[in-house]
Amino acid sequence: MKHLLSAEDLGRDEAIAILDTAEQMSLLGDRSVKKLPTLRGRTVVNLFYEDSTRTRTSFELAAKRLSADVVNFSARGSSVSKGESLKDTALTLEAMGSDAVVIRHPASGAPHRLSSWIRGSVVNAGDGTHEHPTQALLDAFTMRRRLGRVNDLSVTIVGDVLHSRVARSNVRLLHTLGAGVTLVAPPTLLPVGVETWPAEISYDLDAVLPKSDVVMMLRVQAERMNAAFFPTEREYSRRYGLDADRMAMLPDHALVMHPGPMVRGMEIASEVADSVRSTVVEQVANGVSVRMAVLYLLLGGSPE
């Protein structure tokens, strides 16, 4: 593996190798000394064009636990149309001797472009409305830990699929790992062409919940209302929000997941977010293990 640009690129064996490696990495969390010497002398750059303390911190912790040097390059505010171009930034980072660049960027495909300009590895930490592969990996990791497997699980993803990089990565990865995915959203928030995805489509959350092993709620931004994707927040929440009554329709073992940050009261009620079914907190811990695994698999061997 040279780069991790999209979940779509991961074959089944590769994905499982990442999850297995993450499993070993997670054992580190139980030790008093949470540090491995593995990537000593390697430099990982966090290149973030969007504010995301959560994801950046997770990658930073992962790299540091593997003893890599970490440089945080926050390009937030340097809007893409003004200031230094991504290409110039990439060449600068390369000259500084970075071995891997973890990039978060508002433009879909920016990590692909970056990978064509630099020699080191590129990890996509979320690009526009395209993909967020480490999020999907940590979601699969969380499902495997809680439910023992991913294969044959029924996973329901609810919300703004159109604008969601988390949904795109999850649909691809879960399909690769043998889960069945159902997307539930108002038709306005599903992309044209979604019928070619390896997923079922439903507009009726109540009909899908009793058959779901996992329900994953996506964030819905209120701005979408102004662009006529749905009439009001209230109507959205009534039709597609997960409240306690709806949660009661789930099988006993079913999990509730959310990639965060949550909009409580919109797509998820507080009592759901805080319930024992919710994996929101452990998703954060698992994120570090999965990102350690990805960094190790990208940088742990010879550079070709």
């Binding site: 409305t129 990089r165 992309p191 044209v192 062409g193 995805w197």
Partner: peptide
């Protein structure tokens, strides 16, 4: 809009030009 709206734009996460 960034590219033709269809199967490819859905996959690439680029806003579609119908």
């Amino acid at each position: 809009a960034q590219m033709n709206e269809g199967v490819v734009s859905a996959r690439l996460g680029l806003p579609g030009w119908p």
